[in-house]
Amino acid sequence: MKVYREDKSVSGSARHPSRRIVLRHGAVGLAAALALSFRPAPARAATPLGFGDLYGSVGVLGLTFSDKVKALDGQEVVMRGFMAPPLKAEADFFVLTEIPMSICPFCSSDADWPDNIVVVYLERAQTFEQVNRMIEATGRLQVGSWTDPKTGFLSRLRIVDAGFARA
């Protein structure tokens, strides 16, 4: 599979140029937004990633990440799944699951981290309307345990600086 490599520091700002410019320059932003609205959005080179691709063999130490996930750490990926019911109505994260969420994402196993979920962190907190619908989340893959200081949420695999849309 062809992977488009790009510098991490660039990738963040390159994705939503109009929004960022508007934020930064305020009044000038209006003109910039006008100018940019005529320009097609730059294509995002995001690698599709499925829930089946996430983990390799289940060893004695529990889940181990697949080679694909390790290779994509820090890269733009796109994943399809369902948004679990959000814990907070206005939040900067949600849980993306493989299966629609009348079922609990954390109940299928006793493990703290089931193998069919990913946490999606957005650029900014927002409210949601898309629960239980198939969505497509695009962002930078982040591999490894990390505890969200705001919620204490420990996740092992995340998509950060993400955006999402109905699939």
């Binding site: 019911p85 959000p86 814990l87 907070k88 109505a89 939040a91 109940c107 409210t127 309307e129 949420f153």
Partner: peptide
């Protein structure tokens, strides 16, 4: 967060109803 989802699951039954206010709002 994981406990929240588990509690919601275990208290959705015949005698009780567990719900995230956020999901109702959503």
């Amino acid at each position: 967060v994981a406990d929240a989802y588990r509690l919601r699951q275990s208290y959705r039954g015949e005698t009780t109803l567990a719900v995230f206010p956020a999901e109702v709002l959503t």
